[in-house]
Computed example of a mutant assay.
Amino acid sequence: MPKASPAPPPEASPPEPAPPAAKPATGEALRDFALAELANAVRQLAREGDARHSGVHQARKSLRRVRATLALARRGLGGPGRRLDEELGRLCRGLSPLRDGQALVEALGRLGPTAPPALQAQLPQAIGLAEARREGLLARALARDPEFARRRARIGQFAGRLARLPWGEVRDKHVARAVARSERRLARARKRVARQPGHDERWHVLRRRLRRLRQQDHLLLGLSPSLRPAGGVPLDEAAALGEAQDDVLLLRHCGSHSPFPPDLRRALRALARERLQRVRDATNGA
């Protein structure tokens, strides 16, 4: 009787697919985003030459994004997170005069198409005066803090403190409550503007509240879309208030300490008031 042939060996089962990489917890994702923004602020303040003006602007934007991130995590981070936010705010405000110096030059450059012919002829003089003021502000700041080394070192210290915050305590519910808080603050700011449309500070607060919510919305779009503001962020309102900021800046620099001679100051002030009122009327009536 012929021998039975041996059974073939069992086929090897295919390897199990590797499990998908775990998504970072909400707190860890917020921490990593904030640390990247602090690192960017340091890089921006290290820029040289004419790029320093843009570097200051970008550094301030990064610092504001870090503050928006801390606001989202404020319930989980507690007192240490709030204290760090306050110190970041002071650093950011300390850079404001430098940013305003560059922003004034940019605002004047954007005036061209809307300015009456008589003012258009004076704009090169206005821009030249604003540029001289900007360079003077930067030179004095660098004399006190060469290469912005002290500020950059301070941001590095902030990064160390931020990394040690209890990000593991941050939960989605904390972020959702923070977003809801930002939405409520924006709604209150809109109501105050509606009650006092001629009050400059009310408009300033409205712009800040809208900017904070936009920053948080943009951040959450990449990290956790389900936590984004339920009502969205009106881009047309944000754009209008951003444009109006040019006119606020012009008016601020047409007072008693203006870099402009009296006749130029009066012309700039008249145009800025007209443009600003037009934007505010449209925004408040929307």
Rank of each mutant, 00 (worst) to 15 (best):
E135A: 13
L45Q: 00
H218R: 14
R150H: 10
L108F: 00
Q120N: 09
R209K: 05
V248C: 09
E28H: 06
A230W: 06
G76M: 01
P19E: 14
R195G: 04
V105W: 01
V205D: 02
D85T: 12
Q44T: 07
C254P: 10
R110T: 11
R93S: 14
L137I: 01
A118W: 02
L165V: 04
A163S: 13
A270D: 14
L186C: 08
G78E: 03
R185W: 07
E48Y: 04
A36P: 00
D246C: 09
Q125I: 08
A267L: 12
L98H: 11
V66D: 07
R211A: 12
R177E: 14
A34Q: 04
T69A: 15
F260I: 10
P15R: 08
A139T: 09
L219R: 15
L268R: 02
R93V: 12
A270W: 11
P229W: 08
A12M: 10
A132C: 01
E135G: 07
A187G: 04
S5E: 12
P229R: 01
T114R: 15
V248A: 13
Q120D: 08
L38K: 07
E237A: 11
R228F: 06
H253A: 05
R65Q: 15
M1S: 14
G89F: 07
E135C: 09
G242E: 11
H57W: 14
E201H: 09
R192H: 09
E16G: 07
G101S: 07
L251M: 07
R74V: 11
H199G: 04
S224Q: 12
V233R: 01
L162T: 03
L138R: 11
I155K: 03
Q215D: 14
L241D: 02
D100E: 15
